[in-house]
Design a protein around this nucleic acid. Structure first.
Lengths: 126, 126
DNA sequence: CTTGACCTTGACGTTGATGTCAAGGTCTAT
DNA sequence: ATAGACCTTGACATCAACGTCAAGGTCAAG
């Protein structure tokens, strides 16, 4: 299939696909006229990339997963490198959550200081 | 005081101060030679801005706080507009936290699926 | 043969808060 | 008068993942 069809089926833009290729995440054969030609495996790769992006991974994070699929594994996450990324990501997310919780407390404290009572009375609630 | 001194005392770069001015957050008198001239109030404004940025506010979010201080209030947060921003920010932070918690669960689930047991065995732990 | 749907590469725009040059004016001290 | 520490405005660079033209080639259908 060509890039337009892959884009439609994967739910991404053709621009995104070319970008992934430029970043070395996917590759494409070229037909005689220079058009990119993809197979079903590529749909799988792109789907993997999208689901990873959807949970906050970067394209760089997605590399090991793509490599894993290319290596023939059914799941992109079943390779050591992918697992390492999963674990690093979990740690990063935990960090962010902690940061946000701290911030939340700080902001709530400042609000309380600046306007005692404001933090308790929800807007629009009697 | 001139921009260099304010920058040192506030712990920011002169570039940042000029940017805040460009964004309409602070203003400066000009001495005969064209140099920016600041007073102690400006240090207070900049400090307020920095502490807000530190907890994840944008410069735009900081506007009401600066206006509040300029209006003579001791605290930048003690004006209705500032309180509204506080509350909006709290809601935003809560949203982000919820999103991250969801993501964490998703990533952990994928990790479990891809590599059962990996999520339990902490790296480097026997 | 021409429309129209598809494809190509290339390159600038987006977002926020600066960093970092460039090219030059000002002022103090030596 | 010259170094050097300060100031000025202006403008491009950064980060990620694309969006959005621009200018043009390809191909099947009418």
């Amino acid at each position: 299939m060509r890039i337009g069809e892959l884009a439609r089926r994967a739910g991404v833009s053709t621009r995104a696909l070319r970008y992934y290729e430029q970043q070395g995440l996917i590759t494409a054969r070229r037909s005689a006229n220079g058009y990119r030609e993809y197979g079903e495996e590529d749909l799988k790769l792109v789907s993997e990339i999208r689901s990873l992006l959807a949970v906050g991974f970067t394209l760089d994070d997605a590399r090991p997963f793509v490599a894993c699929l290319r290596a023939g594994h059914e799941s992109g996450g079943s390779c050591p490198d992918s697992v390492a990324v999963y674990q690093r990501k979990l740690a990063e997310i935990d960090d962010e959550i902690r940061t946000l919780l701290t911030r939340r407390a700080e902001v709530a404290a400042q609000l309380t200081t600046a306007c005692p009572g404001c933090v308790l009375r929800k807007v629009g609630k009697s």
